[in-house]
Write a protein that binds this DNA or RNA. Structure first.
Length: 924
RNA sequence: GCCGGGGUGGCGGAAUUGGUAUACGCGCACGACUUAAGAUCGUGUCCCUUUGGGGAUGUGGGUUCGAGUCCCACCCUCGGCACCA
């Protein structure tokens, strides 16, 4: 028995042993029991290797897994690599290597690092998204979505990152602060004007380009993504973020006739009750160009055209960052408000967004700040409407002025009748609908998911284009799905599953419906998957709107599966978030026949069948395995993915559910958002150069010390600051624990070899030693804290127990030694295994042992400290025997006899308030 | 601007949800051991103090026998959304 604590020897020894024995693999998973699927968001293997932030998060997940295993659960804890994508590719370019080569090194590094942390992953079931065996199924997923009408191509104004040379999804554009990047041309974050958005990856300001791109119709699921949020147990801030991002708004689309023309202008509003105060209509430049320009009187036409052209020449970015002074031009047209016959002048202004609602807004300056500013700028009248029972419930600060200056006219819509605003809105919407002047609408902030990337390192989108089919007016893919419904739709066959059928207006509506370039597109038959990503040397992005694969005829030249004519492959690859939208479904399936089946040569008929009745003819998901192993019981990850990965994964899961592949809708019923680790008060990032590499600490102190320190630093959902000095404390604690066992072993080896019959004849709690009471209190506290991820306080309690043991060495017995070892096992697995097997002589492994139970009788102490207060201020503390502590009168009597209290209440007519077992408060 | 989280010692952070504020750890100081340094162990450590006490949980009010915790107003800070109709 080595008396000195040698972390290296201990840790390598047990890591090997665990792996050999398969301790951390749920052996029986295929049998009756449902496993506890404990998942940490898989990392992308960056060239820098795992940093302390990863170590913090993954340890938090592993601690929970080990705890659950000791609680008797069948823990399945897999790991993999999110290796496809721009991040990996960019780095490969930077170091002048291919992504393939680089990944061989980086995944090896990550594997080594994750193993060295002692995490209990099941390494026999793992996925790497850039493996052909994985991404052929990502391609299958795309095809499934396409066949369901959930994938389509459209020409749209999209975000183009000039540095990454590809388009990006809306979710991948954020504020510089969120991205942690300062865009070029600015020195600090503070300098960057509000409204500037940057590429999540590189911090460049994206340009607007009109390109034809592949989208996934996530907006069809907006409603379910929203309502299901009520059914899942997630960190509140993530739920909020998702809700905001989906941004559901109920309202009404109202048509206003244009005076003197057989035309209308259509506006969306959520507050039709204020419509009586409408004094003008404003339309976006885009709306004006498409719908109104032809109606504008000749004398104004030049003026209006000029304004439109100037506005359109600016990018959205410019329009938003420019000073928010209202500009606009009158069209000479009037819209009639049929509620009151008011003639509203129609204006064009760039403050109205083309992409939201209809692109036209009814101006109610009495109730909207922006409308008010516009009215002020152009001297339009302001009318206020009585909108609440007590006058006005929608007070807008600037509008105070209107009242004070007597500018506004108050009118009563007559729609209130003593009702609240919400009821009044329902009333008026009903009224307008009945009259046929408008229609209820639901608008969402969520837009469809743009997944095309003009890059190399991703799964090629498995689609092909056939010119011959196009010329002959033949849409060959629709023949494939001839038996499926709605195949005539422009955007492919409409999905008819459980998705919301309500039409929506949102930015997803194509501005220019032009599908001519993909009318003949069809999927590469599943039986011929994968569409393999060729190894090429010129894989750098060119930035010409096409990916590098477009330079490789040997890749894109193919024959049309429908007519046999020469055809062209899609040369874009898909977004890396598509890879990660289903990886958690793959883990339990990777060793199944379903997942491993070769797609090549699979019967063609079954493809048609699968499109028709959603039979599971080809699928990586074994239904039996999926229903037993899924969904994920506990998902552990960063909140930064709130509107990215988590939203996409939910969407894909819901879609696969509707297609009959899964029997649940929500992939992660429980999600815990851990915080982001900071260092020297700043977010850990490569650009700041403050990355902490766990290797150094594992080498010097050991994985157990690092794990202990990381978990003790602060709450799991906080942002702990990594400090070198703190880790020394963790190391000291481990050494003290180790010495406790070693010392006890050598001083009284007898009692260790002969286990005491725990739980045997003990008469009452009073007879227990103080240490036993402390132990049971600790078990109680730690068990509770483990459930809520309060690892820092759990460890504080364990430290208190250790301190108590050191203070009362004579009271130490086998029970406390055994239980302490178990309590600490999730945090310091190697140390505890060594103690368990080598010192305590118990059977391998502590991680398969049973979590200790506390005895309610033993958590009670024989004396209770009662605080003595005078007028609410604590003046003394009194120790009272447990049987007296509940007796109000006895407590009061004892308290009055206390010397300190006597001093304070002498000669006063003091009344006491007694809280049994807690407090005696004297009041006068 | 709107929505949400949060302000507690020199530092990271506790506080059974209205009942002994500052647990646990870091740091620091002193002591023991040591030729010495380090490691280790021990003691102390919210602030002021005339050693009787007094004052402290961002600021100011309120409710209560009693407030870090509840209510009102304000300040600061961190996140989400944002010319979204």
């Amino acid at each position: 028995m080595d008396k000195k604590y040698n972390h290296k020897a201990i840790e390598t020894k047990w890591q090997k042993r665990w792996e050999q024995a398969g301790v951390l693999r749920p052996e029986e998973m295929r049998k009756a029991k449902k496993p506890f699927y404990n998942l940490w968001m898989f990392p992308y293997p960056s060239a820098e290797g795992l940093h302390a932030g990863h170590a913090f998060a993954s340890t938090g997940s592993d601690v929970q897994g080990r705890y659950q295993r000791m609680r008797g659960r069948h823990v399945f804890q897999p790991i993999g690599f999110d290796s496809f994508g721009i991040h990996s590719e960019n780095f490969a370019i930077k170091i002048g290597d291919t992504p393939q080569n680089m990944l061989k090194r980086t995944t090896a590094t990550y594997t080594r690092q994750l193993k060295s942390l002692g995490h209990g992953y099941d390494w026999t079931r793992t996925v790497t998204t850039s493996d052909v065996d994985y991404y052929r199924w990502t391609q299958w997923l795309f095809i499934e979505l396409f066949k369901a009408g959930l994938a389509y191509k459209k020409k749209a104004v999209v975000n183009w990152c000039p540095s990454c040379k590809t388009v990006l999804a809306d979710e991948q554009i954020m504020t510089p602060a969120q991205a942690g990047k300062i865009p070029a041309g600015y020195k600090s974050l503070e300098e960057v004007p509000a409204g500037v958005r940057v590429c999540e990856r590189c911090g460049s300001i994206p340009e607007q380009r009109e390109l034809s791109q592949w989208f996934l119709r996530i907006t069809d699921y907006a409603d379910r993504l929203l309502t299901n949020l009520n059914k899942i147990d997630w960190s509140e801030r993530v739920v909020k973020a998702q809700r905001e991002w989906i941004g559901k708004k109920e309202g009404i689309k109202i048509s206003y006739p244009i005076e003197g023309h057989d035309a209308t202008v259509v506006c969306f509003t959520t507050r039709p009750d204020t419509n009586f105060g409408a004094t003008f209509v404003v339309v976006s430049p885009e709306y004006a160009k498409d719908h109104l320009l032809k109606l504008v009187p000749e004398e104004l036409e030049q003026n209006v055209s000029k304004y439109i052209e100037t506005s359109l020449s600016k990018t959205e970015q410019q329009r938003q960052t420019e000073e928010k002074i209202k500009t606009g031009v009158f069209t000479g047209l009037y819209a009639i408000n049929r509620l009151n016959g008011y003639k509203m002048p129609i204006w064009v202004s760039d403050f109205v967004l083309a992409g939201f609602g209809t692109g036209a807004v009814v101006g109610v300056p009495g109730h909207d700040k922006r409308d008010f500013e516009f009215a002020r700028t152009f001297n339009l009248p302001v009318v206020r409407v009585v909108v609440g029972p007590d006058g006005d419930t929608s007070e807008i600060t600037n509008l105070q002025k209107v009242r004070e200056e007597g500018e506004g006219v108050m009118i009563n819509s007559g729609f209130l009748n003593g009702l609240g605003v919400d009821e009044a809105i329902v009333d008026i919407v009903d009224y307008i609908e009945k009259k046929g002047w408008g229609k209820r609408e639901t608008a969402y902030h969520l837009r469809d998911w743009l997944i095309s990337r003009q890059r190399y390192w991703g799964p090629p989108i498995p689609m092909i284009y056939c010119e011959k089919c196009a010329k002959e007016g033949r849409s060959w893919f629709s023949e494939q799905t001839a038996q499926s419904e709605n195949s005539s739709s422009l955007e492919g066959p409409r999905h008819s599953g459980g998705a919301s059928q309500s039409r929506r207006i949102s930015r997803t509506e194509p501005l220019h419906a032009d599908q001519s370039d993909w009318e003949s597109a069809g999927w590469w038959p599943e039986e011929n998957l994968p569409v393999e990503l060729p190894e090429i040397s010129d894989f750098k992005p060119k930035g010409e709107g096409q990916g590098p694969l477009a330079d490789h005829p040997e890749f894109y030249e193919t024959t049309c599966p429908a007519c046999g004519a020469p055809a062209r492959r899609e040369t874009d690859v898909s977004d890396t978030f598509l890879d990660s939208s289903w990886y958690f479904l793959a883990y339990p399936n990777v060793d199944t026949k379903a997942y491993q089946q070769s797609l090549r040569g699979y019967g063609k008929q079954s493809t048609v069948k699968s499109a028709k009745n959603n039979s599971r003819s080809i699928s990586p998901l074994d239904p039996k395995v999926s229903s037993k192993w899924l969904p994920v019981n506990l998902y552990f990850g960063g909140a930064e993915h709130a509107v990215l990965h988590l939203m996409y994964a939910r969407f894909v899961t819901q879609a696969l559910h509707d297609l009959g592949y899964l029997d649940f809708e929500e992939p992660f019923p429980r999600f815990f958002a851990h915080g982001l680790m900071i260092n020297d008060g700043a977010k850990m990032s490569k650009s700041r150069g403050n990355i902490v590499n766990p290797d150094t600490y594992i080498e010097k102190f050991g994985a157990d010390t690092l794990r202990l320190y990381l978990m003790f630093m602060g709450p799991m959902d906080g942002s702990p600051d990594f400090r070198d000095s703190g880790i020394e404390g963790a190391r000291r604690f481990i050494a003290r624990v180790w010495n406790l066992y070693v010392d006890y072993d050598s001083s009284s080896s007898k009692s260790l070899e002969a286990p005491i019959n725990i739980g045997a004849a003990r008469i009452s709690a009073v007879d227990e030693s103080k240490l036993t009471v402390k132990l049971h209190q600790t078990i109680k506290k730690v068990s509770k804290d483990m459930e809520s991820f309060s690892y820092n306080t759990a460890l504080a309690a364990i430290m208190e127990l250790v301190n108590a043991m050191r203070d009362n060495p004579k009271d130490i017995n086998r029970e406390v030694l055994v239980d302490l070892c178990k309590l600490l096992a999730p945090f310091t697995p190697h140390l505890c295994e060594e103690i368990w097997c080598e010192i305590l002589g118990e059977e391998f492994s502590v991680h398969l042992s049973t979590w200790p139970q506390f005895d309610p009788k033993k958590v009670i102490e024989d004396t209770v400290a009662v605080a003595l207060q005078v007028n609410g201020k604590t003046r003394s503390i009194m120790k009272v025997a447990i049987d007296q502590s509940q007796d109000k009168e006895a407590l009061a009597k004892l308290a009055r006899e206390n010397e300190k209290i006597k001093y304070y209440i002498e000669g006063k007519n003091a009344k006491e308030i007694v809280v049994p077992g807690k407090i005696v408060n004297f009041v006068f």
